[in-house]
C-alpha cells in the first residue's frame, strides 16, 4: 500500500540542517549589517570600481567562451568514447576543482611565465603572458573549465545515446549528429555548466593574483579590487562585495532551470 504522504525525515535532522543553513547565510547577514546604505551608490560607482567590474565581466565572458570551445569537446570525449586510462584522465581534468587556486596560479606561472615551460617559445613569438589580461583569462579558464566539463558530461550520460544512434542509422554524419541531436539534447546542462563556469571565473582570486598580478584596468578584477580596497576603504570593500553577492545570486538563479529533472 502506498502512502499519500511523502516519507518524513527524522525531526532531529532539522537541527544540523538549520545550523548548516545558518553557516552559509549568517556571514551574508553579517556583511549586510556593515553596508553603508547612504553611500552605497557612490561607493560602487567610483571609476576604479567600474573599471574592475568591467574587467571582471569581460574576462569572465572570455574565459566562459574558452571553456565552451575546449570543454564541450572534452565532455564529449569523456562521455561518448572509451580509451585506456580514461578514468585517470577524467580525474586529472577535474584537478583544478579541488586544487587551491594559488597552487593553480603557481602551476600556470611555471608553464606560461617568462621562465616557464612555454615561456621561451612564447617569448620568441613576442607574446608576454604574465601581467596581462590574457593571464587573467587563462587563470579563470583553468579554474572554471572543470565546472563545464562535469555538468556537460553528466548531462550527456543521463541523456544517453539512443537518439544519436537513430540519427546515425538514418545516415547523419557524426558532425551533423553532434550539431542537430546531441547539442540540443544537452542544452540545459550546457547552459548551466556555462553559467557555473562564468560564476567561478568571476570569483577567481588566488590564481589571478599569483599568476597575473594586480594592476587597475589590466589585471585587477573585482575580487582583487575588493582585496586591495579593504585596506584603505572597508566601506567600499563591503559595498563591492555586495555587488558580487548579487551577481552570484543572479547566476545561481540563471543556472537552476538547467539542473531541473527533465
Amino acid at each position: 500500500m502506498r502512502s499519500e504522504r511523502p516519507v518524513g525525515v527524522p525531526a532531529w535532522i532539522f537541527v544540523p540542517a538549520a545550523l548548516g543553513g545558518a553557516l552559509v547565510l549568517l556571514p551574508l547577514a553579517g556583511m549586510l549589517s556593515r553596508v553603508e546604505w547612504g553611500d552605497f551608490w557612490s561607493l560602487v560607482s567610483s571609476d576604479s570600481a567600474l573599471t574592475a567590474l568591467s574587467l571582471s565581466l569581460r574576462t569572465s565572458a572570455a574565459s566562459t567562451v574558452l571553456c565552451l570551445v575546449l570543454g564541450v569537446p572534452m565532455a564529449l570525449v569523456l562521455a561518448r568514447t572509451r580509451f585506456p586510462g580514461q578514468g585517470v584522465v577524467r580525474s586529472l581534468v577535474l584537478l583544478p576543482l579541488v586544487l587551491p587556486p594559488v597552487v593553480g596560479g603557481i602551476a600556470l606561472l611555471y608553464t606560461f611565465g617568462r621562465r616557464g615551460l612555454l615561456g621561451g617559445q612564447l617569448d620568441a613569438l613576442g607574446v608576454q603572458v604574465a601581467f596581462s589580461t590574457t593571464a587573467v583569462v587563462l587563470a579563470q579558464t583553468f579554474v572554471s573549465l572543470p565546472f563545464l566539463v562535469v555538468s556537460l558530461e553528466g548531462a550527456l550520460r543521463s541523456a544517453g545515446s539512443r537518439y544519436e544512434t537513430v540519427a546515425a542509422s538514418l545516415g547523419a554524419r557524426p558532425t551533423t549528429v553532434f550539431r542537430r541531436v546531441t547539442l540540443p539534447l544537452v542544452l540545459p546542462g550546457l547552459v548551466s555548466g556555462a553559467v557555473l563556469s562564468f560564476a567561478r571565473a568571476l570569483g577567481e582570486f588566488g590564481a589571478t593574483i599569483t599568476f597575473a598580478g594586480s594592476l587597475e584596468g589590466t589585471t585587477r578584477t573585482l575580487p582583487l579590487f575588493i582585496y586591495n580596497l579593504r585596506v584603505t576603504d572597508p566601506d567600499a570593500a563591503v559595498a563591492m562585495s555586495l555587488v558580487l553577492v548579487v551577481v552570484a545570486v543572479l547566476v545561481i538563479a540563471a543556472a537552476r532551470p538547467g539542473r531541473s529533472t527533465t
Partner: peptide, 11 residues
C-alpha cells in the same frame, strides 16, 4: 609604470 601593484612585499 609598474606592470603590477601587489598587496604585500612578499608578493
Amino acid at each position: 609604470h609598474p606592470v603590477s601593484e601587489e598587496e604585500s612585499v612578499t608578493d
